[in-house]
Amino acid sequence: MSLITTRGLGKHYGKVRALDSLDLTLEAGDPIALVGPNGAGKTTLLSLLCGFIKPSTGSATVLGHAIGSKHLVGKVSALPQDANFDPRISIARQMRLLARLQGMSASQAAHETDRVLDTVQLGDIGLRKPDELSHGMRKRMSLAQALIGSPELIMLDEPTAGIDPPNVKIIRDLIRRESANATFIISSHNLDELEKLCGSVVYLAAGKLVEYGPIDPSADSGYLTIRPGEIDNDGFLQACQSIPGVSSVQLQAQGDFLIRYDKQHTVDQQVLQLLTANGWSYRYLINGRSLEDRLYGE
């Protein structure tokens, strides 16, 4: 049974096709990145899968059940974009309600509330109201509700948008830890972060599926990405181009060199030798391209 299957799934707002006839099958496992420019249909897709909006065309199943099926209660959860708790009621009380709705008894709900708040390192804020928390803490609190009852599928829409690095790290570590128990689908513009967390990527643009495949850069053979330390950029560029098999070398905006080469040659060893010979340092060398280069490169 697939994690998610969509057949001709679409959502139209008048003449605007927010999502256009999407056919997609996703399997459970490593976290799945959902990427694309603004207006690509990422939030629309997640909202459809969560049952927040109705499809205009097509259908979808989640864990073998139709969207909105009662069989999905407790199995599927989400951190919806821009969804907030009631600012007037204590966090623990709201969490307990959600746990009760998932079929837990009052004592189980109280215990589960403590557990998920501890998981996001907010164990001491249960009696506070959401308005008393920072943006990053509120985001973690929203993430905590998605963990109630240990669901099989957790969909996160922009989980780290607009929050500070310490909170980002907490959320990223948590996703990495929890991904042993559940499959995450993470929509984000932060491709570096997705690359670190996810095993595959769904790339949408203008409401259509552009690409779905593994995120592993090594699968993208014929490329090397290197972030140098303090080096002579022009000298390195010219030296690289003279390595047999290298067809092009580009300095990317973020400071990485993208080396394209003929797959029949082994280039990585020669690049390392080149660095050593010239006394140049480097911060990382990736066999393949970064996600950003793969999706938005030439």
Partner: peptide, 16 residues
């Protein structure tokens, strides 16, 4: 207000 704030989404994930 729960609909506008998005709070209903948390509930809708768990009940009809």
């Amino acid at each position: 207000s729960d609909k506008t704030r998005g709070t209903l989404r948390f509930l809708a994930l768990r009940t009809t």
